[in-house]
Amino acid sequence: MAPGTLAAVLDVDGPAAPPRSNGELVFSAPWESRALGLALALNAGGKLEWEQFRQELIRAISEWEREHPPGEEWSYYRCWLAALERTLDQVGLVPTDQLLERTAAFAARPHGHDHRHYDHEHHHDNEGHAC
């Protein structure tokens, strides 16, 4: 990995950033906070075994590190989301085919409808590998 990766990140989120502010930006996009909140709420309700999820997270991260094409940007929450999907598929709460059905239905919505989290202008993010 390029040593510059870390330095580049540090420019925006290192010693130069207010390190102790409780309101600092911890998510780079709204969907990341939703993905985090889903896992926490499922766990709080006893629907998600944290260790099982964590093992899937470890697997998703190591798959990304092994398989991602050079230059693909690292995204922790992409792995987080993949791990959550897999865990929910395994325990049968949300089988993957049902999830894909719903994403297809949402994608078919007419432009300009009232959507909270999905922005049609941001289609560049669909080239994911592993996570």
Binding site: A29, P30, W31, R34, A35, L38, S75, Y77, R78, L81, A82, L84, E85, L88, V94, T96, L99, L100, R102, T103, A105, F106, A107, H115, R116, H117, Y118, D119, H122, H123, D125, N126, G128, H129, A130, C131
Partner: peptide, 14 residues
């Protein structure tokens, strides 16, 4: 699911 944008997957899952 990896071909589907993450925003859409998250919204659908929720």
């Amino acid at each position: 699911t990896t071909r589907v944008p993450v925003e859409l997957r998250t919204e659908a899952l929720e």
